[in-house]
Design a protein around this nucleic acid. Sequence first.
DNA 1: CGTGGGGTTGATTCTTATCAATTCGGGTGG
DNA 2: CCACCCGAATTGATAAGAATCAACCCCACG
Lengths: 245, 245
Amino acid sequence: MTACTSPEKGCISRQFQLDTELTETEKHLLNQLEQPARCYPAGTQLTDASNQAGRFFTLISGWACAVRTLPDGQRQILDIFLPGQIIGLREITFEDNLSEFRALTDVEACPFPKSRLTDIFHQTPRLTELFFMTLAREQSLLIERIVNMGRRDAAERLAHFIIEIQLRLSPQLNHFILPMNQSMIGDTLGLSSVHVSRTLKFLSDEGFIEKHDQQIHILNFPALAELAGFDKRYLSSNQDWLSAS
Amino acid sequence: MTACTSPEKGCISRQFQLDTELTETEKHLLNQLEQPARCYPAGTQLTDASNQAGRFFTLISGWACAVRTLPDGQRQILDIFLPGQIIGLREITFEDNLSEFRALTDVEACPFPKSRLTDIFHQTPRLTELFFMTLAREQSLLIERIVNMGRRDAAERLAHFIIEIQLRLSPQLNHFILPMNQSMIGDTLGLSSVHVSRTLKFLSDEGFIEKHDQQIHILNFPALAELAGFDKRYLSSNQDWLSAS
DNA sequence: CGTGGGGTTGATTCTTATCAATTCGGGTGG
DNA sequence: CCACCCGAATTGATAAGAATCAACCCCACG
């Protein structure tokens, strides 16, 4: 949790500008959410379930996740956060946060209090709309995971997971580094680590993917997408409804 | 899909007023979303997955749900909507809706186009915030379902489901009418209808609940909540962060 | 009366979890 | 350099949970 040296600015506004034009004021407000950046080493907890609710983070670099620990010790990973995302958005309405945030890799992130976000909402309604959109998009990711866990078997789930991460990370490539061990993957998909191992082997044996350490290489994207029943429309959104800037 | 006789007004604004005070203007804008009401008989589709995206509904009375049908014919119920909810909120950002909306009981609902909602957003930023809050709360329901499907067995899932519906419907009571057959319940929880039957029987035999037709009676709420690992905090939200009205 | 949808029950099979043993690779300390 | 340890991954054997298949009941409705 040491101070970081080179916080790369404008991560969030760059993210939003994929969707729409931003005014200078809007950019300025968003950039304020990105300082000061701090470093959290892999495995560190950004905040725990009980205290420090109402704290957000902008994720500048690295991966993070939201985890829920059940009374019996089982874990469920609720969200995977990639650079440019805001961590904790949905928790804004809740007194206490039922989940905790954890760094999956070394992470640069900027903690800031609830009030900073509400200030933004009050100042520029248009950014409220953008955040509304962000939330709607996150919802569609959650929906897809519900379909995944409710109606697909282990191989399909894993295939779907791999494709989703690949597309969110770099849609034009076919490989990425997955900084999660197999028990974390299991906790994400509702599988045991042992079964993740077997299923990963199955996907390799069948020629869908190749895996060396944390490197995932998608060998046959169409086949993998077919297996997963993947419909990428849930990832892309449409901004017609936004106010003009 | 016949016109309804007595559309009870103010369903949405009543819902919002549980959270905060509304101005007359705000109430007026919200009430405009509730006319004209139409009736949809049980089982009817309000809109299908392909066309008519960008159509919302305010649910005045009855139950509805969002369903996703997979290529192989399996179904997953994504959301259960109860009176006072807005159907289709998260889909606002998407070109085409991957899910369809279906009436579970006879339903009174008011269809209206995307543009109506965006108008509201542009006119009163404060309602945008309220809708943001609504979305955040829906997200927490989805999160809970992910935990449910990922890490709980059939009995726990069913228990959790029953408690959630009871609390959303009428927290002070301990019984309600569940207008879903067992295969719909299965499609909601990711179980087969046969297994739902068995599990329901188990919950009865063990004295957690009683069931006659569609009447669910919770006999031992604490025990059921314990079994489900239910933490009701995800249902209640906190409005500190809202602008003054 | 038939007919059909929903629910129950039993038998069987399949998927996945659990438990246990083994390997592998990367530190660490002697 | 080697012995040791540790966490993660793999593999196999077994058990639990849930799906599937099939038979049957019940009852509302033509």
